[in-house]
Design a protein around this nucleic acid. Sequence first.
DNA 1: ACGGTGACGAGAT
DNA 2: TATCTCGCCACCG
Length: 105
Amino acid sequence: MTEFQLGVIEVVNKVPRGKVVSYGQVALYLDMPRAARAVGWILRTAQLDTLPWWRVINNLGRISIKGNMYVDANTQKKLLEKEGIEVSKDFEIDIETYRFQLGFR
DNA sequence: ACGGTGACGAGAT
DNA sequence: TATCTCGCCACCG
């Protein structure tokens, strides 16, 4: 595990039920404001049971997962709705309503 | 060591 | 509103 991977896991685990953050927010919190894309890479390869990966969406408020062997957009949509988050049929979320503020360090 | 690959993001068309 | 482009950056072979 690299320090970056550990950092991503740690930050995502701060996001409470019913709230979401963007890939960019996670990167910013790790002092790497332009590493949003790298955050997505980490989540794609992470152990799903080590973090609430479904609470991370893109900054437009949309589920931007294309899907892999284990999960797809519908899986994420259901997990979010289970927490009370409203997700449209087009996988859109009112991010300003549900966004969790990670704050500073 | 080097280059292809994304679950990104912001601006342009 | 929907695409498209481009810069970014950690991983991995």
